[in-house]
Write a protein that binds this DNA or RNA. Structure first.
Lengths: 156, 156
DNA sequence: CTTCATAGGTCAAAGAAAGTCAGAAATTGC
DNA sequence: GCAATTTCTGACTTTCTTTGACCTATGAAG
């Protein structure tokens, strides 16, 4: 297993136990995993970004720390944000996939729905001779269309 | 016997023993068979494509892997018919919608899933400056991609 | 208010895997 | 035997991970 994965799940375990927020020392954690401190930043950047549903803040100097907060939003808030702000005119595949798996983690969509959405915007589906710029636009429109459908259904 | 055939049956044996899903290292497998790593890609492309009833995903970089999922199982007759015969290279919107609502009536997908699929291939989503012929092709590919995903989930 | 120790941040480069594609080699069909 | 197709390989590309050298912010002492 990858080091990054170990660190990721270590942090996620902490987040589950102590709930929604965790504070850690970069150097201690690096020491614990026997890696370069900057490895921690890499993990934060690739697995705890806002797109992944986390916020991080930190402080340097004596008594410094890194705090990670799991963002909790209502389903429709999240959907509206995605539709109106996050996804613009165009969006990349990786980015889309991240947003989708986050929706699944937040239980706004089911696992089955998530894989359907992923299938629809996957390269496998979009692998047609169309300029890349168009694909981005297409992906954005498809995502919004699907998210609106979900939003409409969720309205109780 | 051909190398490709050996690799193919090797993987299929793994798939039988460890059941429907297998993860492997491209370089290790190539080493084992004493061939170029890219040979593995060739085998995947020619024998484990979606048309053959398999899905593959992979990751590059340290700790990378290739995962192969067998999707076709006798249960999903209807889906395989749609994927391999009914939907061709291209398909119209009306037709798609009809197929989707049939799937719903046949309880192969839930109502929510049906509306998701419809949202993905709707005119609203595909309303981008792309030639109509392309749209048909796009729709066909998206449908197949989504149906494969459903088949993967339905396999018993 | 300077200085110094303590923490975290950044970035580029090295390393680790997988992907692509053109062309060589082997097979097959006629 | 020859053309067409399929199989294989190798060079090059892309993506993801890990490390290390250098940078910046904070607080405590003097």
């Amino acid at each position: 297993m990858r080091l990054s994965d170990s660190i990721e799940s270590f942090i996620k375990t902490m987040l589950n136990e102590e709930s929604t927020e965790v504070e850690l020392k970069r150097n201690e954690l690096a020491e614990y995993f026997g890696c370069a401190p900057s490895q921690i930043n890499y993990v934060l950047a690739t697995r705890f970004s806002p797109d992944h549903g986390y916020l991080t803040e930190s402080r340097r100097g004596g008594g410094g720390y890194i705090r990670i907060v799991r963002v909790v939003e209502s389903g429709s808030q999240r959907l509206m944000y995605l539709i109106n702000e996050r996804i613009g005119e165009s969006i990349g595949e990786e980015e889309c996939m991240r947003l989708i798996s986050q929706l699944k983690e937040q239980r706004i969509v089911t696992a089955d729905e998530a894989s359907l959405m992923a299938a629809a915007i996957s390269a496998r589906a979009l692998g047609v001779p169309v300029p890349d710029t168009m694909k981005g636009v297409l992906r954005a429109r498809m995502m919004k269309s699907m998210l609106m459908t979900i939003a409409a259904r969720n309205r109780t």
